[in-house]
Amino acid sequence: MQTIMIVEDDPKIAEHLQGYIQKYGFQAVKVTDFHAVMDTFHAHSPDLVLLDINLPSYDGYYWCRQIRKESICPVIFISARIGEMDQVMALENGGDDFITKPFSAEVVMAKIRSQLRRTYGEYASKAQERVLERDGLKLFPERLEMTYQANTVSLSKNEADIIESLLDRYPRVAGREDLLEKLWDDQSYVDENTLNVNITRVRKKFQQLGLPDAVETVRGTGYRLNVSWPAGGKR
């Protein structure tokens, strides 16, 4: 059963959407803590998100950007805002569609089914999956996986983006500012330690593959992939 996550702070609208979605055989999960939307996202791994723009604390644009760091699941904005720029902002921040309030529940369901077909079903892209490889190490960016020999590790979206940058830049250095720009749209809101934490996580993923020294720190500049393992063999 596919799961739809509803991010709507008007309880009556959220209840109405949940009941209607469940009527058509989907699981519908409502967000109740609007300061921790991603906690609900991680707990349920939804196949599609219905997202309001006007929300407590952070707006829907912000939460859509957070989702896009980790997932390509469809995001449909539902909002009372009817301006053309609001719709443009929704799409530019990672949304797939926009529905204005008041809305028809039938239209919402039609758009949900359309996005699910396009992403997972008969209309899903059949394009060949990307694979980045270097001396036996393989990164599958869309699958969020990395393999070496017979071992495989799962990655977060941020981890996959960092490793992709390291592979793309090799043997050059991937600068800290370049990595921050790739991972986050607005660097001014990123704590200096945030990248360090993500690099530490990336190193742990390489360690799980038996490659403990794969990420080299270039002091004052950034990071470089340290390809010192024999291709296809053990260190």
Rank of each mutant, 00 (worst) to 15 (best):
T3F: 01
V7T: 04
D10C: 10
P11T: 09
A14K: 08
H16W: 03
Q18K: 15
G19N: 14
Q22R: 12
Y24K: 15
K30P: 08
D33G: 05
F34A: 05
H35A: 09
A36P: 02
V37W: 11
H44W: 08
P46S: 06
D47T: 03
L51G: 01
L51C: 07
D52C: 04
D52N: 14
I53W: 11
I53N: 13
I53C: 11
P56R: 12
Y58V: 00
Y58M: 15
C64R: 07
R65Y: 07
Q66F: 04
I72N: 09
R81S: 10
G83W: 05
Q87K: 14
L91T: 04
G95M: 06
D96T: 01
K101L: 08
P102W: 02
R118Q: 11
T119H: 06
G121N: 08
E129W: 05
E129F: 09
E129Y: 11
L132Y: 14
E133L: 04
E142T: 08
R143K: 12
L144W: 00
A150Q: 10
A150P: 00
N151H: 04
T152P: 00
E159Q: 11
A160P: 02
D168M: 09
D168T: 11
D168H: 11
R172F: 05
V173R: 09
A174F: 00
D185W: 02
D186A: 13
E192Q: 15
N193K: 15
N193C: 06
V197A: 13
I199D: 06
V202S: 03
R203L: 09
K204T: 04
K204S: 15
D213R: 11
V218D: 02
G222M: 05
G232P: 09
G232A: 06
G232W: 04
R235H: 10
